[in-house]
């Protein structure tokens, strides 16, 4: 038991329970739906997860600092359109340049958010609610209300989503999920092993203490927004590759799914705790439920109501049950410590 407690911390507990819930959900749908465990279903879910997960990673960084970024949906829409437009004008742009364009445009938009939040001292909810509308407006102005058609795009991006990088047991790894997993792993490492990552936790955990400890909070918060924007730009690229046809309504409302996934994935909306991995599982959970509901043909319209309920439940668990668990944990921890001390003093 002591060994178990040594390896599993409260934080991990949340992720483990999420995995269990995910398993239960898959088991439930597997019983309800015929031919549920198929490669087709897996691929569908994987592509859907890929897009949301990349953006959720960026959102996680922002939420860790006690902020929120509601403009991600519009950034995805704009970059997808802008990139689609560039690609249809110059079909000889290659993959790397395309990704660089998307990430660059997204990062610029994130920079605007970050500057106003960190240095203008405007609450992030106000800023990003505003830029949500502004970036959408930019998209409409830029597009002149036209759409990007699938056939205008170069061939390489058309075939990109269905390429198979690796195949085993009838399940294949395609580029978009591979990107998502890569991004998730990279930022899991960034959060765990870099000074920048640990400072994000510190800022969200106690802004006052962060100030006293000499952490440049403003710069860190701005960076978090820039990364969120850049990853949304990458999301725009993936959106373009996956959907192909981009209207001015592209990715509208995506921000709500992303925020829901992040919160459900155990990232504390009040900052300071949570992991990219947790958010990733949150995305899988939400996408699985959504797509399975569609597959069940009962009522895909339950999705949003469930999302909202999920957020509330996650927040309630965070405020009440996790606090209680933590207290329990540290108490046993202390009892252990004091018993050790007694032994030593004897």
């Amino acid at each position: 038991m002591r060994r178990v407690r040594y390896f599993i911390r409260v934080q991990q507990l949340r992720e483990i329970s999420l995995l269990l819930i995910l398993a239960a959900v898959i088991y439930f749908f597997g019983r309800e739906i015929e031919d549920y465990y198929t490669a087709r279903m897996y691929n569908r879910i994987a592509t859907q997860v890929a897009l949301i997960a990349v953006i959720a990673v960026g959102q996680t960084l922002v939420v860790l600092t006690r902020n929120i970024d509601l403009s991600v949906g519009s950034i995805v829409g704009f970059t997808a359109f802008y990139l689609g437009d560039q690609l249809s004008k110059n079909p000889n742009i290659d993959l790397e340049t395309a990704v660089a364009i998307a990430v660059g445009v997204g990062a610029t938009m994130g920079l605007v958010n970050g500057l106003i939040v960190a240095y203008g001292r405007v609450p992030s909810i106000v800023v990003t609610l505003g830029t949500l509308a502004i970036y959408r407006g930019l998209l409409v102005e830029y597009s002149g209300s036209q759409s990007i058609q699938f056939r205008q795009l170069p061939d390489w991006i058309k075939t990109l989503p269905s390429e198979v990088l690796y195949e085993n047991f009838g399940l294949d790894l395609r580029p978009l999920p591979a990107i998502a997993i890569g991004v998730m792993l990279v930022f899991q490492v960034v959060l765990l092993y870099t000074i920048f990552g640990r400072r994000l936790y510190a800022i969200g955990s106690s802004p006052e203490a962060a100030e006293l400890a000499g952490i440049p909070s403003r710069r860190m918060i701005m960076l978090a927004f820039v990364i969120s924007g850049a990853l949304s730009g990458l999301g725009g690229f993936m959106y373009l590759a996956r959907i192909g046809t981009i209207t001015t309504d592209a990715a509208r409302g995506l921000e709500l799914q992303v925020v829901a996934a992040v919160v459900v994935g155990g990232v504390n909306i009040f900052g300071g705790s949570g992991t990219v991995f947790g958010a990733f599982i949150g995305v899988i959970l939400i996408s699985t439920i959504e797509l399975s509901l569609i597959r069940m043909q009962i009522n895909e319209f339950w999705k949003d109501a469930l999302l909202g309920a999920f957020i509330m439940v996650a927040v309630l668990i965070d405020t009440f049950i996790m606090g209680w668990l933590r207290a329990l944990w540290s108490r046993t921890e202390l009892r252990r410590a004091s018993s050790v001390q007694k032994v030593q003093s004897i």
């Binding site: 000074i195 640990r198 300071g272």
Partner: peptide, 24 residues
């Protein structure tokens, strides 16, 4: 005391250290 409640004890001890390099 001004500690960071979400960080562990080791991190709390070393949070203000400069020149720890880029990686933890």
């Amino acid at each position: 005391p001004l500690v960071f409640p979400d960080l562990n004890i080791a991190e709390n001890i070393f949070i203000s250290h400069r020149r720890r390099g880029f990686l933890v």
